[in-house]
Every structure is written in structure tokens, then in C-alpha cells.
Write a protein that binds this DNA or RNA. Sequence first.
RNA 1: GCUGGCGUAGCUCAGUUGGUAGAGCAGCUGAUUUGUAAUCAGCCGGUCGGCGGUUCAAGUCCGUUCGCCAGCUCCA
Length: 642
Amino acid sequence: MENIKITFPDGSVKEFECGITSYSIAESISKKLAQFAVAAKVNGNVVDLNRPINENSEVAILKFDDEGGREVYWHSSAHLMAHAVQELFPEAKFGVGPAIETGFYYDIDIKTQLTDEHLVKIEKKMLELAQENKPFCRKELTKEEAVKFFTEKSDEYKLELLADVIEPDAQISLYEEGDFTDLCRGPHLPSAGLIKAVKLTNVSGSYWRGDEKNKQLQRIYGVTFPKKKQLDEHLHLIEEAKKRDHRKLGKELDLFSLQEDSGAGLVYWHPKGSRIRNEVETFWREAHFQNGYDILYTPHIGKSKLWETSGHLSHYKDGMFAPMQIDEQDYYAKPMNCPFHINVYKSQLRSYRDLPLRWAELGTVYRFEKSGVLHGLLRVRGFTQDDAHIFCTHEQIEDEIVEVLRFSLYIWKSFGFEDLKFYVSTKPEKAVGEDHLWEKATDSLVNALNREGLKYEIDEGGGAFYGPKIDIKIKDALKREWQMSTIQFDFNLPERFEMEYVGDDGQTHRPFMVHRALLGSLERFFGVLIEHFGGAFPVWLAPVQVAVIPVSQQGHMDYAEEVLKQLKKAGIRAEVDKRNEKIGYKIRDWEVHKVPYMVIVGDKEVEANGVSVRQHKKGDQGSFGIEEFISKIKDEIHNKTI
RNA sequence: GCUGGCGUAGCUCAGUUGGUAGAGCAGCUGAUUUGUAAUCAGCCGGUCGGCGGUUCAAGUCCGUUCGCCAGCUCCA
């Protein structure tokens, strides 16, 4: 019999006999550890604490905060919630109830429309059940036995899930906690008593198995913790995150608006927001020229013939605004820029010597998004993509992808984003384009990511019908992931538009076409940018970089105007606060509006021919000469200091 | 689009069982002339999202429509 090596959270390793459960191990080390242990990790797999360990295994005891611990804890909480719902609504039927990044949910089928009051009752019942501290017991059955069990309960949802299990001799596991039994792979907590604090956050509709043709169940979202204090901290963090919400800051800082009379999802950029956009666009253009791109401007609308050729009218019509008729022709607002870039390509005969061609455009597109999906700046109906198309030969493709990745990282880094997630989406079932092209393209994406040492996840079959892609996602203030950059192959449009180039062999060839957007859309990017900085933009982006505040209106206004003149001459965006208020009031106001620098000018400054500098959030920075201050701030702008 | 919730002054929000609206901030005017996060006083400001209905009477009840919020589905 071999021994088992156990790693503990503190890093120490001890040996135990085979056949022991990880719970007993935890207990034999310390009662306290056992009290907080939620699961065990055996050879990399998270399992129940009470299952015997029989091999020479690497075992680690998991607590709530360890990697994988929360998932077990929240998944068990989902069961406990379902149990509570079953107690209060015996007729309830249950869909699925997994742990998610910020807690858990359970899909429930009941007639009663649940309200906040119901949630409070369910919370109470959960805490009652938790106090009973019943163990979670695993039962293993054959598929036949499991089907029998759920048939007796006439539980159609679990039966449907069981029907998906193909292998006839598959082992099915159930978990029992008190009077609640659920079909589940586990693992679970040793007992419900570990759940001490509960908050059910909201109810919403959700389609059974994620298909909008199916029945809509009620999904209850919640979060639980081993300590009340952790729950309070969690709720506090959510409140703080809401303060960064770009919709709230957009209004408070007068950056943008969406107005009912012009239509949902159509953005008004106000002067301050436009100022920031202008800085972003200028930076973007310069960076593109430096990285070997040319910039195009193309029309906003096109005749139906164009969209028939591109296939948009047969595949994407629901996503387009209805056409307008001019001279008995239908014109559509463009949902994408690609056909226009292709038309530029086709305006002359292309040689392999011309490739690669890299054409970028800040292209404004209109898409008829479903009303329920619109969300501030992050999901709109009219937006400007920082689009580009790369046309190249088969030999060039991998290097081109590497260049796009590097460029993309440079752009995101310039705005202070380091936490990006990469996803590779491969060929779906329905697809156009030859297999060897898909293979070549997918390889070039994966190789490029590997060459750059970037971690990625593969979304098998998640590509568009016209080609594989890399998506880059980042999170908003409320931890929702948004797709920003995308690098997509397109095997469809080059075919449809019959794009060609003449190779060195004198024959015609079809180029590779890569569609890419780095910021995604300026609207979505701006939304995420606002949340990223919490509205306190770095100096190079700030709409007002310096507020000049005279101590008194009568004595110091001339000097303030003189300072303003010098700042403006240096290209700095500055304003004089002429209001008849005490400086405490004015400082507070500029602080609230998150202006990076304030300069206060009074008798002392007039005499010394200087300024007194105050930095946002950091307070008084002391006295500077005017020239000295200007050169400091110009450095920051030039270096794009964040 | 679907499920649920919501829409009152520029903003944030009160408004009892139906009896034709209120606060703070912002704005304007005046006083004050200020030294690092809110000076004082007065004034202005609302077809209660739109339309239709029930009622003697609708911000409040019903229908419809537009928009917003959470989530689902979809997506840059």
C-alpha cells in the first residue's frame, strides 16, 4: 500500500495512508482547517472531501478562497437555494444551477412570478436549512436507475438532460442534501452549514438550454459567503463598481447622451466626449500610418446590388436598417465596411507585388440590433468601427497576424489595458471555404498567438461561417466581458466578389482577406475607457487638462487670463473659472468633474509670477513657475502618461 | 425579440386608500471678493414619457406605444 502526499494551503507536504478521506486528513491536521475545508484537489481534479483516496495522489485541501474553492461553494449554494425553493414551492421543477464568476444561479420552472419579496423569503429559508447543517451525499446510479428516479418525480428537465447521456453503462451521480436530491456531477461541500451569508440578487427570464425557441424559466441569481463580513464587502464592491458605470459618468461628466426622439442606440457625442474621441482618433491614425496601413473613406450607403453580391441581403438582412428608395433603387445603410474596401481593391488589377495591402477606416456602420440588447455605449445601433482589411498572399499570412497582434497589444497598452483575454474560434458546422484554407488560416492564428507567448482559449466551432477568428475581450466595471478587438478571416467575400491578384507565375490567385478591428468600435471603446479610468482620464485624454482658479474675482482675474493664454499657447486644454464663488467651492467642483490639474492663482502667485498646482485626488502639489508647470504637463501629454 | 421591473423639474429623488405636485443640487438675480472638496438670500423651473380609456375626479387604475434597467438569446 502506498502513501498519499498531501499539500496544504501553507505549502507544507505530509504523508497519509491510502483509503483515508481528505476530510479526515484535514481534521487530523487541525480541527480548524476541517471546519473551513470546502473540497479537495486530487491529481488536479476537484472532488468531494468525503471520498476515499486510494492511489498515490497529489492532494490539496481547498478552502473557500483557494482556486476552485468558490466554484464548489457556490455550486452547493445553488443546490441549497433550489432546496429552499422546493420547500416554499413544492410544485417547482428545476433546470440547471451552476456556479458563475460572481456567485451562482438556478433555473426554476414555477407558475408564481417571483418578486423581491419572494427572494427575501428564499434567503431566509436557505439560512434555516444551512443551520440544519445536513451533509451533501453523493449517490451513484446506472442511467436506468436515474431515469426511473426522475420519472417517478416526473421531472422532465432532468430527464431531458439524462437523455443526452449516450453510453448505456454510464455512471450517473445524484447529490442529496436533506430532502433535496439533484442530478449533479459535483463536487459539493461536506455539509450545508458552511454557508453562512446569503444574498439573492435578482430574478430574470432565461431560455431552457439557452435556446430562444424553448420555454423561458425563471433564473434566480445569488451569492453566498462563509462570513457575513465577506458578503458586506462584496456588496460594497458592487456599489463601488456601479459608480464607475459609463452611463452614470457619461451624464455626470457631460460626455455623451442617447436621446429618445432620435432613436434607441444612437449616440450623441457631447463636446467633452468628442474631445476625447478626437485624441483617440488622432492617436489611432498616426499609429496606423506608422504600422504600414493606408486609410480609406468610403460611402455610408450602398445600392441593393452591392449587398446582394456580398450576401448580406440573404444572410444578414435582419441586422440591417430598412432600405430607402431613391430613383427606384433600394439603398441600405452599411452594416459593415468590407464590400467597400473590396471595391477599392477591385478598382484596378492587382499584382503580388502590391501585397500585402492594409486598409483602415474609421467606418460608421448601422446595425439593427434587437431592442433588448442595447446597453449604453457598449451595445448600440450606430457605431464607428476602427476597421481594417488586410489582403495578402498565403506566404504572408502568419506574419501579418503576428503584426496585427503586436499592434493590438500596443494600442491597448497605450490606454492602460493589460488584462486582455484571447479566444480562438474555429470552423463551425455550416461554413464556406475549402478545408485546407480553414486549416491554414486557423494554424496561422494559433501559431501567431504562440509566437507572441499569449495565452488563449479555443472556442471549438465558434467561428463565423466565413472564417476562423481571434477575439480579444475585456471586462467592464461590473465584470461583464465585452468583445473589443477581432481578427477574422473571410473566405466568403473574396469568392463572391471574385477578388484576384496576378502571382509571380503569371497566373491569377485569390488573396487571403483578413478583417480586423482593434478598439472594436469607438463607442464601445469609449464606454470601457470611461469605466477603466472611472472618468478620471489621464492628462493626454482629459477634455479639460487644467482649470485656472483665481482666488478672487477682482484682484486676480487678469493674471489668471495671462496664465490661460500661456497654457493655450503651449497647446494645453485649459479654462479659467470665472465664477463668483469661494475657491473651496470651485476646487470641489473641478475635483468632482475629475479634471487632472488645477492651478490656483492669488496674490502670492502674481508676485512670484508662478502658479500653485493641485492634482486631482492627490491634492496640493506646491508652487511652480509657469514655464516649469507647462513643461511638466507637456511631458505627460507627450509620453501619454497614465 | 423574450421574461420581469421602471419612467415625476436639467440631475438625484419624495408624493399615503384616486381629490389636478414637493425637496436637495444645478440654473438665474442680488449680497459677499473669498487661499485648497459646498457663503448667504430671493427667484425661475413640471401637459407627472406619448396616446387612448375607466371615473364627478388619474402622477396614482386599465390598455397601447416609445424609452430605460437586470438577465436570456444575439453581437463590435
